[in-house]
Design a protein around this nucleic acid. Sequence first.
DNA 1: ATTCGAACCATTTTT
DNA 2: TGGTTCGAAT
Length: 729
Amino acid sequence: MKTDFRDMWRQLNHYQQEAVLDENPACVVNANVGSGKTTVLIAKVLWLHMEKQIPFEDMAVLTFTNKAADEIIARLKKSCEGEIAPEQVHGFGTFHSVALRLLKDRLSVETAGWTKEFTVMDPDEETDLALELITSRGLKVKYKNRLKKRLEQEYGAYESGKAESRYKDDLFALYPLLLKEKKRQNKMAFSDLLRVSTELLSPGGGSADAEAENGVWRPAWVIVDEVQDSDALQMEFLAALLGQTGKGEEHKEHEEHRGKLFAVGDPNQVIYSWRGTGDNMFFLLKHRFGARELTLPVNYRSGASILEAANRFLQFGTGIQGDRENRGTITVKNHYDPFQEAEYLAERIRGMHESGTAYRDIAVFYRLQRQSELLAKVFERHGIPYELSVKETLKDIPVLDWLVKVLRFSVNSMDEQTGIAVLADPLYGEKCTKKKAGQIVREDRRETSELYRRMKEFPCGVFSGKEEEFPSAQALFDWFGLREALHPTSAEYRRDAQTALAFLEEVCAYCGQILEEGPGKRYMDCMREFINSSALYGMKIDAGEKNAADKNAVDGGETGEAPDSVKLMTLHASKGLEFDTVFIIGVNPGLIPLRCTGFEQEEEERRLFFVGMTRAKNELELSWYTNPGEPGVAGEYSRYLKMIPEHLISGETGTGGSSEKGYGLQQMRRQIQENRKKKEQPEEKKVRVRHRKYGEGVLVSDDGTTVEAEFPGYGKKQFLKAFGEVEIK
DNA sequence: ATTCGAACCATTTTT
DNA sequence: TGGTTCGAAT
């Protein structure tokens, strides 16, 4: 264990070492891009643990994403020979997951109006609930289609006591109603997790009794990753964890009891301010906690030319120092249009692969999600393996989306909204209207719906005997009568049942593990924990289930751990990653930078481009179109290209100019547009479909989730669109 | 119900 | 700049 830490220590540069050793009450590390930010964070945790004898239990290590949290724990485990028990790292995770754990284990949620059995809402659920309240209470709220955004954005104004909402409607009257309803149904939205835990952590927030009884958790150290991405709510949570109310100065006397803050971030990589406050949280935090600022100036990732170019886009700090001998190359290319570019990229990447570069070392970044469509099509035709960074969630698979709701209601019968959604589901529910479903749930009419009865009696029905093992997946499957609910006669029954069963296996495995680690927990609590954490985990499907769900996935990629494929993603999605070779496409005015309204926005576009450039280790190729073919995008050099000194650019050629090549694009675009039309309103005329088993057929109906088609010799069959079983032509 | 002008917004996405 | 949505007016 110790040798590992010494090894790690020796590999740190003196800036990094200083950061690790810092013991100020608050320290914020300005970690330049590629400067070993996470390494420092891990070293800090290990140093505190091993040299300062601070147990992991007394630390909060907070991240913005699950991915980052997973990475930290994984690297920590690797550095510690002894296994780290899950209960030791209860303070490690995303802001939301740590808040959830606190609310469940350490804080008296009862004071705030919930019970310990509360569940976590799905993000869309809150909007749905709000819409229902608007209707049932006859509120007048404008821009309902943007309600989600409005609820988030205008909360600050509401909280600070503003009299009227932005559009002078009843939005502000909706907030208290919504909160009351969430308490009544015993569930919290994501933001509630932070808001309520912050409230209960603050002195005077929770009742004095409860605090004395439980003892509010005061971590000795609070360590934060990517602080620049945190928002106002997360900042308050931090302050509360540290025991700072932010108001009076009375906390001075408790100084030695207060936790210390160590935060790591990069103000130059703020690319998500459009969803937060807009202020640069890095400096806000430094100011608020009076933190000492340290800098990590050495970049270990990119070649010198790439760094020098990137430095032109740096907004804060004095410049990044390079470490690598290698200069790296920057190339600027001009292509006639996106189609020509895609063709060129496919050829170029094939060539690179033939001369020994792995596909996985190559990435293509673009500004807008829709730019990926053409690339994917062309790459497919050329047989270039690629991976789009689009996350698939449980919600994308209708059976699982529904099944999760079944479980969620079973585990929290106060959650009327979910109960109703389950029963009124057009696919798997009780073939009843929302109204009828509402009646069943509200009047507890178990005799009317067997499914409702099963969900309602789930706690005592399945978990009756305490000595029993956790029920098997099959037992759960049977209990809810899924055999019937999933339509055994439908074509997709086998797949649906398989998917559902696989998911239930997952549930059982998780619960079994929890029980093993901490006996004495009740089955229901384990189950609730699973449901809650899956809500927070973005409902991501892990490999096993995903394979079960779509066996005939688009490309026949190998089932290896990391498939060797080119990564296609937006500039935003590229943050935190690195590749040997990076292509940034569409560096045209109107795209990079995107047409922006203010100075602030323009700065963010610049940071975004900076983030993209600095992903490249050795080769960076930037390209622009002569004919972008999009309204608002000019067929010129982006000014970002002009910002790169010419001597750093090693080649400037391309396929631009020749106009006859435009034909391909026209064709491709037309094709894409036609496909879109078919997806949206396919019942125009006779649309032909193809199925692996049933062959050619004719489309009968398509409601967005289910496709019904008629096949000669087989009759009408239904399919779930999400599985892509049928190919609509 | 339908039509009109005015206001607003577009893209990026995690929990 | 063009597409959507709101509210007022037919």
